[in-house]
Each structure stands twice: as C-alpha cells, then as structure tokens.
Amino acid sequence: MNDVSHIIQFLFSGITTGSIYALIAVSLVIVYKASQLICFAQGEFFVFGALSMITLTSKGLPMPIAFFAAVFISVCIGSLIQQVLIKPIQGSSVGNLIVMTIAISLALRGLALIIWGRESYILNPYTKGEPLFVFGASLQIQVLWIVGITILVLLIIWYFFEKTSLGIAMRACAENPLGASLMGISVQKSALFAWAWGAGIGALAGAVVAPLLFIQYTSGVMPMIKGFIAMSIGGLGSIAGSVMAGFLLGLVESYTIGLISSKFSDTIVFALLMLVLIFRPNGLFSKS
C-alpha cells in the first residue's frame, strides 16, 4: 500500500464510524428538541438494534425483514419508555429527568445482559462479496450499505422535518410548546413521536454496523458518548450540525489512529469537544 491508498483507507473507515456517530447524534438531537433532555439510553437502543437483528437472522429471518423488525422493536421500547417513565415526570426538574434516562440506560443494559448474556456477537454482512479496491484501499461492501442507509435515513429525516406537516408541527412544539398547543398540536404526542424516532434511529445505527463490530450488552457506551460529543460540537439542537460533527469525529478518529496512534484517538476527540465548548459554545457550525 502506498501513501495515497493509506489516506483513502482512513477516509473509508472515518466515514463508516462517522455515519454511526452521525446517526446517534441525530437521534439524541430529535429527543432533545422534543423533551429538552439528553436521553442517555440511546446507546442501549444501538445495542438492542444490533443484537436483536443478529438474533432474528440466526432464527432464519431474511436480512431485510430482520432489519426492519430490529428497528421496530426499539421503536416500541422507546415509545413505551416515553409513555410510562418519562411522561409522568415531564414537568419535574431537568436533573430528575436526566437521572431517569440514566436509570433507563442501566435497566436496558441489564435487560440485554439477561437476554444475550456476556458474549459478543457479530452479524454476517448484509450481502456477500469481495471487498472493492479503490486506489489500493479496500472497501468492504458493508461500508456501502452503512453509508447508503445513513444517507437515506438522513434524507428521510430532513424531508420529515422540513416538508411534512407532522414534522413541522414537532419542530413547532420543540420551539414553543405554548404556541404549539394553541394551534391544537399535542405536545405529548410530539414527544412520543420524538422518542419513537430517536429509539428507531439508534437501533438502526446498531443494525447497520453489526456486521463490522463485535457487539455485546455494554457496547452502547462509547457510541453514546461519541454521539453526545457530536451533538455538543454540532450545537446541541441542530440536526445538520450534529450530522456534520458526527462525520467530522469519525474522520478525526480514523486519521488519528492511522497517522498517529490509536492511543490518542479518544483524547483528541475530547480535546476537540473542549475547544468547541470554550471557543464556539453554540456549536462549531453555528453562525454566531
């Protein structure tokens, strides 16, 4: 391999992890905008997405059906959690709500331990096929699936929040709940939809990456932290900002690992977060 092929190789792996970070960051932003809270259970939806897809395919379900079923399971769990655990304490302090989402995260992790044990699992690639070679760098077919599905999902999210009346109503709720309820929009329903979206996207991130990573019940922790960092760098409430920050983090990590050392990759990401929080507290990509 020559230098160019190395650079391209890091680009591919950066885009792959970046896709996952972007998806998790977006799922955090959607919940944050609707409920003004960071859902710390987002990493567990990632795990549930991956592990339920693995279990379903091992039971003989075809890939596409297992994929949608895995996402759907998390959508149901997320909706149920919102209705049973978040809605009753919606009016209480931010502290209470955050403690609640941490508790939910630990409970879901425990549930995953009961269901799947401590083993790590990996899924077969979505489609068979030898890696492609681009300027000497190898590109696994699964990476194309990850990037393709990520782009498709981001487009659907964009369309939903920009073009559909339900999506615009959800944005209105997030921005001004009083104004929205006077339009007859149900703020409660909007929060429910947001949790359903958030859990579904988190699970989808797990399901697409399942053929590339060994995943066990604790594997949601790092993606959750990285997604949260991407969300913070992107300016907390900005979907576009968090997508860009997610890809940026993935690339920074990949090039740090490739060109410097894997020891520094997390350090550099955290340093980047601190710099952004100090110098651009409204987000790296914000206008002000």
């Binding site: 944005r171 001004n176 009083l178 104004g179």
Partner: peptide, 10 residues
C-alpha cells in the same frame, strides 16, 4: 397569546 408565541425558526 400574549408575547405572540410565533415559531421564529419556521
């Protein structure tokens, strides 16, 4: 309502 409560980002 008082204070308009429009959706500024829309």
């Amino acid at each position: 309502p008082e204070g308009r409560q429009i959706f500024g980002s829309l």
